[in-house]
Design a protein around this nucleic acid. Structure first.
Lengths: 146, 146
DNA sequence: ATTTATGCAAATCGTTTGCAAACCT
DNA sequence: AGGTTTGCAAACGATTTGCATAAAT
């Protein structure tokens, strides 16, 4: 099921001369299974044989390889998710202001198109070379509303 | 010039039974003058008579009052800016992946409209009560491109 | 007078790092 | 063997907090 993901991650790591060790595989597995950004704490909980230090170190390696990246919510915890180049799915985040949880969601194509065209204008308008974008909607999640 | 800002902040603080002390005023002044999100370090540098602890405490108070809020970039530093309810200006951020700097920019009205309409659908589609949004464009700033 | 804000120094806590043992090739 | 990754424990650093003084009401 997450076979293509592993292949994509392996390719990324290889390009940076890094091995796809079991610890790294566990992290990728956990992130793929979650389908939402996870905190370092959630990750070590999901990978019981992985000490924190190794988890952090491997997240850094996976980050340099472009397979994983940090997601910023509103609380103090860093969250991690698989890069779109690995999942093949472009998405955005719903951030709960009450509990800090982060969920994925897909924006309508029309909106994505508007953002792309905006990004194109930033170079000439502001001298800013746009590479990617983040769109987060902040509010209250279903669990906290109940 | 930033008179309306001070009035708005004062109103916010008053609503939460907090005083508009000189330290808080200095922070607001610095944020208003900057016109972009500032790190805690930049703020204490801009307010030479303010110790870090007071700066952080006052930023927390201003945050609870809804006059200031945190902005997350890509580096490890928290950044702060005046809330839109105080400045009256809705805007988004250009985040430099190279140096971490954050600049403000205004998105086209059409894009904002698309986002608003998306936010409206999230309640029924996902049970998520949307309150606000963040749109960040990541890339390389003019200074880092040179 | 009493409550609230300040300033210093010490504590907190997510995250990072040094180093020796275990691993892969 | 030679270089890399791991695991433990100690270090790091941005942010927070305790407590005594100063300010505001």
């Amino acid at each position: 099921m997450s076979d293509q993901i592993h292949t994509a991650v392996a390719r990324r790591l290889d390009a940076v001369d890094q091995r796809y060790t079991s610890g790294r595989r566990q992290l990728v597995e956990a992130l793929a299974k979650a389908g939402r950004p996870l905190t370092a704490g959630e990750l070590v909980a999901a990978c019981p044989s992985l000490p924190q230090s190794t988890a952090y170190r491997n997240l850094a390696v996976l980050g340099q390889a472009g397979a994983v990246h940090r997601v910023s919510g509103t609380d103090e915890f860093a969250r991690y998710e698989l890069d779109e180049s690995v999942t093949g799915r472009h998405h955005h985040h719903l951030v709960c202001l009450s509990c800090g949880a982060v969920e994925d969601f897909a924006a309508p194509a029309g909106l994505e198109h508007s953002v792309s065209s905006l990004m194109g204008t930033l170079g000439s308008d502001r001298g800013f070379h746009a590479e990617s974008h983040r769109l987060d909607v902040l509010g209250t999640c279903a669990a906290c509303r109940s």
